[in-house]
Design a protein around this nucleic acid. Structure first.
Lengths: 135, 135, 135, 135
DNA sequence: GTGGTCTAGACCACA
DNA sequence: GTGGTCTAGACCACA
């Protein structure tokens, strides 16, 4: 597949995988009915353990976003609005919290704005990296 | 003391405490030579475990920002530029990463901008809350 | 053929097929000497994978209940008492286990009784559905 | 703790643990606010791996039935009616399905009734065994 | 001490 | 081939 995961991030790998897949559904890079790479394939692809991918898929299934039949691949179901807004709300809280910490530490609004432009300039052409700002 | 900590945040409490104290030094709410509340006092004050405050103080001491004195006293040393920039750089990376995730999840630049204004409007009058967007 | 299988049940499909065929022998819907549908036919009929039917037939053959004949034909041999009692005992254990879990979860005896009546009222007229309580 | 798990059951161990804890809440053997044994303690107690208990607890937490704070024990929150009914409904479906299979296999209503009496006679005095009908 | 994440690897059920 | 479960054990963060 098609994305990168950051093992040093404080965001757990399984959570990064979940978020990436959700993002790809929003992007329409993954559409309802599409099948996902098998657990083992994805695990090898992004260089993590099978169990880690399995956990991500299992939780996405519990959230009703993907679904597996017996012995078959996982397929995208879709992204209920409710789940979507929950995910978004959680991320917005995180953003707000980080912004407050920036203000506290004396990072100026202009500096943040510059970063914002920088990130959003890349029209998600690649969009595949998770957090390429880390080593 | 003078600040609040969010036990549900994914940022560890000890790290929140460290950052808050650094911010207060930047703010000049704490100046070199000022003494800090004792570990036990602060712990009781903000409602966290003593070990948590102890860890924050220990690490701040290692960074040369505060100094242990006789009898459980800690005093502010100051905030060397080098340390300050490191701290700031780390936070900026975190911000960039969150911004990328926002873009991935389809949160518009305008929406982020709105949040940015909202946060920075409060001229840090209080500045005491860590993440008051949570219940 | 003549029965339905529930792909969402926790009972494996091949086991459902086996049990169904055994039941039909008991019912005398299938008699010794009768031939069974070919693996492919049955698979297409009930909409499952060929391997799944193959496994069911293979195991039924091992139990001496059916017999492979020339050219993909399978014929009913019969249902030896010994095998019959084993099958029955296994199911009774399963039932006991489920009943205990019902008790644990606070489902009353009356409620179970009501279900029992409901299920047994249908004199197996159809008998074709495996678990028609699912959507 | 206080219960037994059946490693040979087709019900996964983590699911058995979840169901047992739910049952104990219904029983009022566990009340809101009570703390649960630590993951490691329970794991040793019932002889399974730490990860298995961790998964059970994690899922119960996702369902809102128990909850852990940082570095603290898990505590019982309670059992929302919605979750309770879902759990019960799922079990009732399972029971219905097993009853149908019993009928199919020619187990008489009287026989089932006898089992029902037998199981429910034990007024859950012990109630601690998961499925002691298995070896 | 507590829980959380992750790995490597086994073994099973299913198609 | 596919996914599911489980284990043993490591390592980390937190109190």
């Amino acid at each position: 597949m098609w994305f990168v995961v950051d093992p040093h991030s404080s965001v757990p790998i399984y959570a990064q995988i979940k978020e990436k897949i959700k993002a790809m559904i929003l992007n329409s890079k993954l559409k309802p009915g599409d099948s996902l790479p098998s657990i083992r394939t994805l695990a090898k692809d992004i260089g993590v353990n099978v169990n880690t991918v399995a956990r991500a898929y299992r939780e996405l299934e519990l959230e009703g976003i993907i679904r597996a039949e017996r012995g078959e691949r996982y397929a995208v179901v879709g992204f209920e609005d409710k789940i979507y807004f929950e995910t978004k709300e959680r991320l917005i809280k995180e953003l707000k919290s980080v912004l407050k910490r920036c203000q506290d530490l004396g990072i100026s609004k202009e500096e943040v704005l510059r970063l914002l432009e920088e990130v959003y300039m890349h029209q998600n052409e690649g969009g595949d990296e998770y957090d390429n700002s880390k080593e």
